[in-house]
């Protein structure tokens, strides 16, 4: 039960984080479409780092 609550919290946190990253990246691309490639790469890397964190927490908590 507590595991599931923890997992929910992790997903909420990760979701907020990913949303922030994605949203800001979109803004950045909209502002500077010529830098889209670089922004995308950076976005994926940071997203991956966040994902690793969230997965790590999920698996440690399991």
């Amino acid at each position: 039960m507590y595991n599931l609550i923890g997992a929910g919290l992790i997903v909420i946190g990760g979701g907020i984080g990913l949303g922030q990253i994605g949203g800001k990246a979109m803004e950045g691309i909209a502002r500077q479409p010529e830098a889209a490639g670089k922004i995308q790469t950076a976005m994926i890397i940071i997203g991956a780092l966040l994902e690793g964190l969230a997965f790590g927490a999920l698996i440690l908590g399991k």
Binding site: A48, L49, E51, G52, L53, F55, G56, L58, I59
Partner: peptide, 13 residues
């Protein structure tokens, strides 16, 4: 933690 996140990410995805 760096390699740990690498292995967990790939596995979990």
């Amino acid at each position: 933690t760096k390699p740990f996140s690498l292995l967990i990410r790939l596995f979990a995805n």
